[in-house]
Write a protein that binds this DNA or RNA. Structure first.
Lengths: 185, 185
DNA sequence: TAATGCATGTAATCGGTTACATGATTCA
DNA sequence: TGAATCATGTAACCGATTACATGCATTA
């Protein structure tokens, strides 16, 4: 999924500025499975305009820089539907921490401890953040879109499972590092 | 983690050819959290040679093309330890399927069904694959490296959690798509 | 006979990140 | 006073993927 498609997707949910699109990938609903930087969003938005897939409206603000609000055109909506009709590429997890932990025996024990504890905390924080958003929506009695609900629930389930696995294997790892290699039971 | 560091890491486990390094990212121990293509591995290996971090030995084979077996030098080993001393970047999941599922309401029901079923199957397959490797090691009475054991266990735990979550929310999603938007309970 | 696995490498291209440039407001 | 938030954009650079080039052996 390139950034152009990602922008199309965010805009399909309603008008937005480049800045707001960035936020959608930082704290918004896409935060846990896609990302994009300013350096790719703004050029993508320009292309969308050039191709007639979006239109923009400048809005003045007092005491703030003007914002440029983008909105999909009919052609943009069609392009978005074509895009989500494509076959998805397989999931990809990139984890430097897992990579380091793989080499735990080459690392000082304190480092491994800090690494795994920080890792658990960050996964817990992610799960809490998403769960907070879900609770908010539910409490507001807002309409529940089944797709969005499933995806955010997925984030919570997976992050929790990751944190729980690490928490319950943390001590065994640390103990294992104190001894020479052992055979499996 | 760039490909050069990844190659350093694979070679720290023993000598290997470019082809074997590729396999380590496809089916090997790194498969579920890092990847690299031939187009990046071979140039990385050349750089390693040029910088004196690795040395290569050509080995003839009957009926097969010659292989070039790479091995770390002392400098290479030091470079690897410097690399794993660096602070890791945060994990990154990129999932097109989740992205599509987020827009389930814009998709035909059959497509959503195929998407989620395929997704569950691929996660189950991943978990089974890793579990197979673990069982093999354990059965062989092989030495257990605590870091490696933790990392492969992580893969199993997370993939299983993902598949289980999707399996138990699949029907609710499909049912939800048949009705107009609902309020949260 | 076609596809897959083994085996190494190059080149074009491309998408995206990082850093830079600008600037007002608000909060600590 | 310094940092963070809001806000848009450009340009250099870079890493990596894709496709290409080659070729033999085995398996279906």
């Amino acid at each position: 999924m390139d950034v152009k498609t990602l922008c199309l997707a965010v805009l399909s949910q309603g008008e937005a500025t480049g800045y707001e699109i960035k936020k959608a990938f930082e704290e918004g609903p896409f935060a846990h499975f896609q990302r994009a930087s300013f350096g790719s969003i703004y050029p993508a938005l320009s292309k969308l305009l050039a191709e007639g897939l979006a239109e923009a409206e400048a809005r003045e603000q007092d005491g703030r820089p003007d914002k440029k609000v983008y909105r999909l055109t009919a052609a943009g909506r069609a392009a978005f539907h074509r895009a989500i009709g494509q076959e998805p590429e397989p999931d990809q997890l990139r984890s430097d921490v897992l990579f380091l932990l793989y080499f735990a025996r080459e690392l000082p024990k304190e480092r491994v401890e800090a690494l795994i504890d920080g890792y658990i905390a960050s996964y817990r924080a992610q799960a809490d953040r998403i769960e907070g958003c879900r609770a908010e929506r539910a409490a507001a009695g807002a309409e529940i879109d089944p797709g969005k609900w499933l995806v955010s629930g997925f984030g919570v389930a997976v992050y929790r499972a990751a944190a729980d696995y690490l928490a319950s294997n943390r001590d065994a790892l640390l103990r294992g590092l104190e001894r020479p290699l052992e055979a499996a039971e």
